[in-house]
Amino acid sequence: MKVIDIKDLYKIYEDNEAEVHAVDGISLSFNEGEFAAIVGPSGSGKTTLLNILGGLDKPTSGEITIGNVKINELPPSKLIDFRLHNIGFVFQAYNLIPVLTAKENVEFIMDLQGRPKAEKEKRTRELLEQVGLGDRLNSRPNRLSGGQQQRVAVARALASRPKFVLADEPTANLDSKSTENLLDIMEKLNREENITFIFSTHDPRVVKKARRVITIEDGKVIKDEAIR
């Protein structure tokens, strides 16, 4: 089943009166349960594409349909609400709320959704146990390693029961062991919860795990291959 459908997507910036085509006519679609990596050199348009997919940036033209909703047509206030209920985010620098514990960080997004307390607590505990942090519920981010923080970020991204998770260079700040561990967890969650994961990455270890690799250069898809 199609989760994301992109048609003729363009993002054009004006830079010193010259036009920069960060995304240049991309058409793609992602199905439920995909584990896909978007790769390409710096400046190829990966992050811009991810931002547009996540509703953080508006395309110059083109159409993005998530489920049945054309998000490029949503007003900003509706877009925030759409992100809250449909898209999970994992950032390169973890970006946890430093004043909240691991448990509270995961609960926070469900709090924004207005979920009942019992449901929040149950899902938080389950997710943190799934990412191997069942014993660090009450630790604040500054008490966790980079790998552990990123695992909390993954749990947070899944807590809202999104249609898909966007991860922008999620392993860029992690050592090999933490990267391996994180990828295993994400792959397991992808299989168990059937959630679509889309990464932008340079990391060959991520590419190796991906079941679909989309290569972008100069804002265009130059290769889109299923690995297994």
Binding site: S77, I80, D81, R83, L84, N95, L112, Q113, R156, S160
Partner: peptide, 16 residues
Amino acid sequence: VKEIGMLMAIGMTRKR
């Protein structure tokens, strides 16, 4: 700035 950006990204409304 980064943290507030993250909160808005994950779905925290401007009002919140």
